[in-house]
Nucleic acid binder design. Structure first.
Lengths: 113, 113
DNA sequence: TAGTTTCATAACCTACTGGTTTTATACCGC
DNA sequence: GCGGTATAAAACCAGTAGGTTATGAAACTA
């Protein structure tokens, strides 16, 4: 998978905010409207709308239409691209830390067990 | 692996800059001094020093001492933590995109083949 | 000792981020 | 059409990010 630098810039920058990561975590459970996404936070609604715009421009979410509501859906592609980029450092990790394989195997075991 | 939110903030923010990603790519090949790291860029040396400070505070690099030189080394732990975080979205990805397993298997195949 | 190399720090500038409040837009139900 | 609901947009503000130049400090070299 070839990923342009600006795409990674936008993805990582979007992921660097805890509010946005929490929004993504919520969306991993399924679609949600802006109000639903805003409710757990003390922030104002426009602040959430700004975060959603950041996520949308990074391609991490897409938005539909349902009357006044704009349901948001998680988009996987940039997350996968980020993972691919990180995976290219696996060899360096193995040198300095431990094998990613262990992690992946562990994840697989969790999935199957 | 439990990762504090601030750690992920710092890691993803550090990865959101192409210069810093390029520095990490260079360091994946092995240790390098500040001047060596700066040479591929048109930027001033202090700019590189700032980037290195960001990487260091994110725990992505560590620095030694060799006379006047401050050799930098890649540190894997935060990269692994970021990968772990991304991996927790795998189920959502599979729904909306395709199985991460395919990617991982492909990477394994590349490694072994 | 003096000069050179390596790197960091300080001060500064511009642009962007992340929040606010206020206002506008679009759609629904009555 | 009118009031309520859902969301976006505008204007504003403080803080931070990423660059610059100029300067300083530490350690080698002659």
């Amino acid at each position: 998978m070839v990923v342009r630098a600006e795409a990674l810039d936008a993805t990582f920058a979007a992921l660097a905010d805890p509010t946005r990561r929490a929004i993504l975590a919520r969306l991993a459970q399924g679609e949600a409207t802006v109000t639903e996404l805003a409710s757990p936070f003390q922030m104002s609604q426009p602040a959430i709308s700004k975060h959603l715009k950041v996520l949308e421009r990074a391609g991490l979410i897409s938005r539909g239409r349902d009357a006044q509501r704009r349901p948001c859906r998680l988009e996987a592609r940039p997350l996968k691209a980020a993972t691919t980029w990180l995976a290219s450092y696996r060899d360096a990790w193995e040198e300095s830390f431990q094998r990613l394989d262990d992690l992946l195997d562990e994840l697989k075991r969790e999935e199957e067990g």
